[in-house]
Nucleic acid binder design. Structure first.
Lengths: 248, 248
DNA sequence: AATAAATTGATTGTTTTTGATCGATTGTGA
DNA sequence: TCACAATCGATCAAAAACAATCAATTTATT
């Protein structure tokens, strides 16, 4: 067993499991730990993996900042239920808009094996889907670090070039009076997504229902379906005016 | 048993098992180890196999998809020198195009404290610069995982909307006959960058100078400056026809 | 047949790879 | 915070593989 052969196996293991343990690898390859250690160091020098104590990890070029992950990790149970229901709406061949909300982000994990095109302004979405069957299209324009997303005039124009079958969007608030956002940039891009999609789904956990915040940017007619874990009476009104409501 | 016959058997074994062991092969062919060693060296020179200690392996088994990580980690010392020189050309207020080459990527670390706008189709560049003073603009379009970058018609059109003061580009080869690329997508986006920038810099390590590969997509007049660690005599010709050459 | 050229194998010393030891460093849990 | 254990890097030694050289053999050429 030479270095090249070991290198091959190590990188395969890394790709499959995301990490490598020196002890285990030494046993598996029937060699000493120090040999594996040396191998890992060499591979780390070439930037092929990231060395840890006792092993190695995959390198990730696109790391998502902690605060985004944290926000996305809040209220995960409700969000995951919502996203599972949303994923059920997506079938192979769909062209899907996904915006930069934290709920929409969690939808990624449920659609990796679908043969669809995703058009998004969110870098975390790109990151999550980059090694999946999904083909990706990034919306261009000015990048906002805090939101980890692209916004602005050029981005809106980019969206207008495409026509999606479905759009999955988040908002900061929704009430019988319409859709609300915390910034003009997000409002206008959400509007653009909705305008260029055959069907528009709003993913919102209970905290968003009935909430009116900062800027009202669209009426309820901009959306076709609300997917939510809430059972607020506001939802009855939505149904009455023709908005589909999927409860989870 | 002559060389031709052995060569045939060696290559067959290689194809069947993916690797060849000198000891075993010597025994099997009833010849000495040094003969096999010599055979393998010859075959390796012709690129038919990859030589290891004690044997050989199939080339394509070791060829890990040209991914970005791999390229970026290669020849870093030369690249860093080139990039330091390139960074010296950038001043506050510049609007800078950066393409998705691995050399250009390494420029990031040297420009984090500059107050400039960077427009790029490379996600690793975005990641590197996202927590810096640099303001970022992402070029939109279809995302290619292997290159970690955006390419295509929409991307080219996006570039055409902007006008940069400087463009920092990589190529797969440059000779007195012009610029060469390994794919049409990269060629056309490089062309677009050059066309919409007041000044175009080519960052290339010595391996690229004099190399003519696959597709010629532009003449030398497309670029203003070459920054390189090479001292090839080809550079003299570049100077003669008015291309600035910065050696490092 | 005589000569030249290429191939092969043996010998030599050198380089590479590997594994063991030991003190230093790092991480973990009380 | 301390101490224990795991992991680490440096150094050394042994084994394997190596390149270089030269002689023997085969093959090709005149």
């Amino acid at each position: 067993m030479n270095f090249q052969k070991r290198k091959q196996i190590i990188l395969e293991t890394l790709k499959a499991t995301g990490e490598v343990d020196i002890k285990r690898m030494a046993a598996e390859l029937e060699t000493s730990e120090i040999t594996i250690r040396r191998d890992l160091n060499k591979l780390a020098e070439d930037g092929l993996l990231y060395r840890t104590h006792g092993g190695a990890m995959q390198v990730n070029l696109l790391e998502i900042p902690h605060d985004f992950v944290n926000k996305a990790a809040r209220n995960t149970e409700a969000k995951d239920k919502i996203c599972r229901a949303a994923a059920a709406e997506i079938s192979d061949g769909d062209i899907v808009f996904m915006d930069c909300g934290s709920t929409v982000y969690r939808l990624c994990q449920f659609i990796k094996s679908k043969r669809i095109k995703v058009i998004t302004n969110s870098l975390p979405v790109v990151y999550e889907l980059q090694n999946s069957l999904v083909s990706l299209n990034i919306i261009g324009g000015e990048f906002n670090t805090e939101r980890q997303a692209v916004h602005g005039k050029i981005a809106n124009e980019h969206i207008a070039r495409y026509k999606a079958t479905k759009a999955f969007l988040g908002v900061d608030g929704i009430s019988r009076n319409g859709l609300f956002a915390n910034s003009e940039l997000e409002a206008s891009i959400t509007e653009a997504f909705a305008a260029h999609s055959a069907r528009t789904y709003l993913l919102c956990d209970e905290s968003k229902i009935g909430r009116e915040t900062y800027l009202k940017f669209a009426g309820l007619d901009a959306i076709d379906t609300v997917i939510t874990n809430s059972n607020s009476e506001e939802l009855e009104y939505f149904k009455k005016i023709g908005v589909e409501v999927i409860g989870v």
